[in-house]
Design a protein around this nucleic acid. Structure first.
Lengths: 360, 360
DNA sequence: TTGAAAGCGCTAACAA
DNA sequence: TTGTTAGCGCTTTCAA
């Protein structure tokens, strides 16, 4: 009942119960505890029960780091994306998290914010963690030095028994050990452009997307191929690269509207660029789709909230995330070796909503 | 020059370079390598260089699991949210990731999909990982059994030297060792309701949010307080709880419109519910804000894309995520003990856009 | 300034 | 069915 004396133990770092503690309480060896918990080895029912009681009474959970060190896997996958809050990446991340979870894995997430140096550094951080797979998402720079450095990391990961999964980004070159899940980026752009042309549009403004960036290159390739297929000449003035992002769409569209550039439809590099474009058009008193048609890419939820509802290209983002994990963990599920295919391409298709009208 | 013979070593698990390999190549002891790499101890310049060369030539990265086992921290924080792709959670997650990154931590993310059993299990999974902090985000059930179980985990985490940070959810009770970052949920709802009343609205429909849920309770409390402050009687028919989410907003609004319930404004429990409500109203030929006013909560980007642009309550989501990490890591930054405050409340305020009109 | 060696908590032979 | 023990790769005394 007296006040407890202040001991010198003020700085002992708190520490959790260990398997040895459980063993002691249960009156068995640590090996038995390990087996009882893993359940992969015969343990007497009575023993198992004693162990379980000890576990409960000590509030014991195994130390995953020790487990990873002793065992073969960390039960973790890593995912590197641009931005956690960007819906394009968030939906892929959702797929990754869900599939990882289904496969008994936890998910280490990191954002580059578009910095490729950082991207390289993050792969190394994940390598330190010994994740079962590292999933790299989104468009990539075509800078050769960068590609070389990333290829080196792919090889390192491979040598470590992990794997680099490229999700929605181009190959690092033949011979570089990666897996990949791609989507038909070019095909979606082709289909959309062709649709616009079928609606009578001839002068279509393509706007957004960083140049020297794989995603931009693919979408533009589909765009140009559709033009060519219909015998429409490319006009450099109608291709306005720059960035993904609402501000770019808004600002660049404003600038263009201040010129006398002639166009009847706008193909925004993605839905959020389209939102910016739409606002610029609105402010100029131009009605969509009556005065100008507008389309986007990605089919993120926002596309359906815009007014008019945005016609866009659907990309199965969540599926891509799931497949990336499946591919990355393929060597774990079976007893190694029999990995099926290393690359997978999912389809895209256009979603027709209300933002396109035949050219009058 | 001959073909390499196929050895029996077909099934050796690939394994990365270790600190011992580096030591061997550099011709020093592992302790020296450790010190050279950590940089926290004097090492001869020449030695350091030899080590760095060895590291580079072996493509060595330290094993974070071994490091965590030997050292004191895993340099990891865990975050548990409802859904990775839900913007409310995604923005908080962005703040968490950014602050964690700034503090040299990696971020383990997991989604409950609204399942509280799973939430409990996920906390345990994070406990196994020995994360420096676990951040639990979003509204919580008020079920006593659930609260008790979570409180037990908070205590376990605390005993382990980690910490449970409650982010945007109510306390687990006095004496339960947690930290928390809250936002003025009630105040935001009060301010918004008062604004609606000031615009002449008397019959305001509150729609959405699961019942028996802390977030709903707070928002409703603010709503009712504002009503009371202006001497307006509560009408149970005007409070329609159910769920967060666009489908609920749409469906319930449709149902209500089929009745003769009288109201001139709708307060949606959050922005995405508002999007659903807006669609239902539109389809009914009701114009917002001319025929009925509509407001939301959270101020996610979508609110600004709706037409009319949605008047809503701004919640500093990213800040909350950052603060949660700061709080959780507070004991690490200083030499333990001198942790400042354990709870932080950030403010909310209304953002007036175009979806409210004075009642005519 | 460097090395030797004792753990950190767990798994997985190997024995019994 | 259970116990003993040798690592897993690193950090950190303790000595030199």
């Amino acid at each position: 009942m007296s006040t407890p004396s202040i001991t010198a133990a003020a700085h002992v770092r708190p520490t959790s119960a260990t398997i040895a503690d459980v063993a002691a309480v249960a009156g068995v060896s640590v090996a038995t505890v390990s087996r009882a918990l893993a359940g992969n080895y015969p343990v007497a029912a009575a023993t198992r029960e004693r162990v379980q009681h000890a576990v409960a009474s000590l509030n014991y959970v195994p130390n995953a780091n020790a487990r990873a060190l002793a065992g073969a896997t960390t039960r973790t996958v890593g995912i590197i994306i641009n931005d956690v809050a960007d819906p394009f990446f968030a939906y892929i991340a959702r797929g990754v998290e869900r599939q990882a979870s289904a496969d008994g894995r936890l998910c280490l997430i990191m954002a580059t914010n578009g910095d490729k140096e950082r991207e390289l550094a993050l792969v190394d951080l994940l390598r330190e963690r010994r994740t079962d797979a590292v999933i790299l998402v989104g468009g990539a720079s075509d800078d050769p030095a960068y590609r070389k450095q990333m290829a080196a990391r792919a090889r390192a990961l491979d040598a470590d028994g992990s794997v680099l999964v490229l999700c929605g980004r181009p190959s690092l070159g033949p011979g570089v050990p990666t897996k990949m899940v791609a989507y038909d980026n070019e095909g979606g752009a082709f289909a959309m452009t062709d649709y616009l042309i079928s609606q009578g549009h001839r002068r279509i403004l393509y706007i957004g997307g960083p140049s020297n960036f794989s995603t931009t290159a693919s979408r533009l390739a589909g765009f140009n191929r559709a033009l060519a297929a219909r015998g429409i000449a490319e006009d450099p003035a109608l291709v306005q690269q720059g960035a993904f992002g609402r501000p770019f769409g808004y600002t660049r569209m404003k600038e263009i509207l201040a010129t006398d550039l002639d166009f009847s439809a706008v193909f925004a590099a993605n839905d959020v660029v389209a939102a910016g474009v739409l606002q610029a058009l609105e402010e100029q008193g131009l009605r969509v789709p009556d005065d100008v048609s507008l389309v986007g890419y990605d089919d993120v939820p926002m596309a359906n909230e815009l007014r008019p509802r945005l016609t866009t290209v659907h990309v199965p983002l969540e599926d891509m995330g799931r497949e990336a994990v499946r591919l990355g963990l393929a060597d774990f599920s079976h007893d190694a070796g029999a990995s099926s295919d290393d690359t997978l391409t999912v389809g895209t298709h256009i979603i027709i909503r209300d933002s396109v009208k035949p050219r009058s």
